[in-house]
Design a protein around this nucleic acid. Structure first.
Lengths: 154, 154
DNA sequence: CCTTTTCATCTGTATATACAAGTAAACAAT
DNA sequence: ATTGTTTACTTGTATATACAGATGAAAAGG
């Protein structure tokens, strides 16, 4: 004997109808994952994950930028930044120089070449979510989320 | 020669001041990670990650619940659910029975025993974020995030 | 100067999650 | 009945991320 639940197959549940939708935990994660997917999709043209792409863009904008700086701007742990840089280095898109305890990250020519395409991806990503959410609503969302993220510093 | 950036060490940047704060991608991820941390902290008393805890709670509320159901309510992929269940099974908190192609997940007595403590964790988690964000604002946030997550179904 | 502390980064390891492919059951179509 | 398709779940593998500890440089204290 086993319980066969009501809707055989594809229990598709909207986030807002999920049993745990009222819970900040799942809502925030579900939203982040969906946005992640949209972003991955938008950056697939340059064969980079969004994080790698943003890091590369920062290195282009600010050549010699340091991992600690990248960590705080990208809101990631230093160890994560190390790993991201390693991968970009393998792909010959950035180089790292170490002087004393400091490390500086510079884009390679090959990395710089990608900039226009990355900007396109950025625009496409923006356009896509604006077309889904509307300009108003997406701006409001970003603002309120970052305000709240600041408050949540633990 | 290397560039020494302005604020030696601890480039602490609020989410709202990050170079990429205007980007939905980083904002959503940063927020989700902070909430994740708060949740992990709240559930550390039962030695479970929030996802594991929620899965266990669902199995207690609805004994015999199926992985597909869990996947849609917890907004996770079926394979992820399999892995979560495996771990709970190792910890003897749930058991799985398979009949045909269906799988049912039941809490063990040891699992059920945890319910009161888990409810405490849930309450603590809720209380913590409400105390930081306010009741109004946190409700509004959850609502708008889940509404937007629904729209983003790709 | 020497010692201790702090700092910036890296390494080892672990986690949650995902995708894609695999498997086996159930269903459908002829 | 046989065969093909769909479904439900699992497995293999990969990824991004994190934490904790290691390392080596710099700064501070005496």
């Amino acid at each position: 004997m086993y319980i066969q639940l009501k809707f055989p197959y594809l229990y598709f549940v909207k986030t807002s109808e999920s049993k745990y939708c009222h819970c900040l935990y799942f809502t925030a994660n579900a939203l982040a994952r969906k946005i992640e997917k949209l972003a991955q999709d938008s950056w697939s043209k340059v064969n980079l994950s969004p994080s790698h792409a943003y890091l590369l863009m920062m290195a282009i904008e600010e050549p010699g930028v340091q991992p600690s700086m990248l960590a705080s701007h990208l809101q990631l742990q230093p160890s994560t930044i190390t790993r991201l840089i390693e991968k970009l280095e393998d792909a010959k898109l950035v180089i790292r120089t170490t002087e004393g305890k400091m490390t500086n990250v510079y884009p390679t020519p090959k990395g710089k070449e990608l900039l226009p395409k990355m900007k396109e991806c950025l625009n496409e990503f923006y356009a896509r979510y604006v077309s889904i959410l509307g300009k108003e609503e997406s701006n409001k969302l970003v603002q309120s989320m970052s305000k709240i993220a600041d408050k949540l510093v633990v």
